[in-house]
């Protein structure tokens, strides 16, 4: 059973300037307990994908269509917003990028975690006491437990802190505690460490990974930073301009990237012991989401682009072992590199 199964997800944003095609039919499958990373430049539709999975995109401004949207085997495609409220936070939770803006600035962080327990009726006392006061007490007890779990010392004290009084790493830990609060099947982490220093980044990722392994939670990690992905993810989806251009296990992608875009992404990270003298960079920038190029979206930036790439979009070709790639010339490129 898959923790998440998305088939043919499409999201558009109609604007005055034209229709923004943010996500153009992507499929994602995440096995229970595994971590899948969605990697791509900013603006490629990663975050929109995550919000669409949570059904947090509203109409307007977005229009979402999807063939299949299943969480842990249950279909959530047809759920109304009311029904979704019971799912969000409990079965699927989200960690946002910037913890400072993602936390309500005028509310104590502990109270903000309490809300989850209260909303999902998880704080009904074990001894059968269900009064309002008891529920709140129980929620607080659980919140402090959750805060301790993510490595926050003095959890009782931090419970009463306001977001601006905490450090960046601490805030991100609060968000993680919030996400794991109800022990959900799936956690979507949208660039969880981008706003942090590298050292803090590592700590926060450790906490995240640790909890994920311990609880056997599935994780959908959204990032532009391949170096994070290496240690965290089991599977990688590379996204470009709203389409998936390559999919494979972490090992496969890092050892043997097939799509020129993936190669470019890998070429721009530094590794210890790397002999390369300079970084390979992808020229130019992401095309406008309203006027995407014809043919393969990547062809204007691709050094291997041929005539066919300019007119026809390549299919997402399935290779052995679940590997997929969307490129006309991947075989030639591979052979050329080896030969």
């Amino acid at each position: 059973m898959n923790a998440l199964e998305v088939k043919n997800l499409k999201v558009i944003f109609p604007t005055e300037m034209g229709i923004v095609r943010a996500v153009e039919g992507i499929d994602i499958e995440i096995e229970q307990g595994k971590c899948a990373a969605i990697v791509g430049e900013s603006g490629c539709g990663k975050s929109v994908t995550s919000l669409a999975v949570m059904k947090l995109l509203s109409t307007p401004p977005a229009i979402v269509r999807v063939d299949k949207l299943e969480l842990g085997g249950t279909d959530i495609k047809g759920l109304t917003d009311k029904q979704m409220q019971k799912v969000r936070g409990k079965d699927v939770a989200m960690i946002f990028q910037d913890a400072l803006t993602a936390l309500n600035p005028v509310m104590q962080v502990g109270k903000q975690i309490d809300e989850i327990f209260l909303a999902h009726n998880l704080s009904d006392g074990e001894n059968g006491k269900t009064g309002r006061v008891n529920r709140k007490k129980e929620a607080k007890r659980r919140t402090i437990e959750a805060l301790k779990l993510v490595g926050i010392s003095d959890a009782e004290l931090r419970y009463k802190a306001y977001p601006h009084q905490l450090s960046g790493g601490m805030r991100q830990r609060v968000l993680i505690a919030m996400a794991f609060a109800c022990n959900p099947n799936l956690i979507i982490a949208d660039e969880p460490t981008t706003a942090l220093d590298v050292t803090i980044q590592a700590q926060v990722l450790d906490v995240l990974k640790d909890l994920q392994r311990k609880r056997n939670t599935s994780l959908m990690l959204i990032t532009h930073d391949l170096s994070i992905v290496m240690n965290m993810a089991d599977e990688i989806y590379v996204m470009y301009c709203g389409k998936i251009v390559e999919r494979g296990t972490t090992r496969e992608i890092f050892k043997d990237p097939l799509h020129p875009y993936t190669m470019g992404l890998l070429g721009s990270i530094a590794r210890i012991g790397d002999a390369k003298s300079r970084f390979v960079q992808i020229p130019s920038s992401l095309p406008s989401p309203i006027h995407k190029p014809s043919g393969c979206y990547f062809h204007p930036r691709c050094q291997y682009a041929g005539e066919r790439c300019k007119t026809e979009m390549p299919p997402l070709e399935k290779l052995e072992g679940g590997r997929c790639v969307r490129c006309w010339n991947y075989k030639e490129i591979k052979n050329g590199k080896n030969g």
């Binding site: 929109v48 669409a52 947090l56 509203s58 109409t59 401004p61 999807v66 109304t80 917003d81």
Partner: peptide, 14 residues
């Protein structure tokens, strides 16, 4: 997906 119209325009819109 019929969603609540009150929800704000959220991140991710270019």
């Amino acid at each position: 997906l019929a969603l609540e119209t009150y929800a704000p325009l959220t991140g991710g819109v270019p």
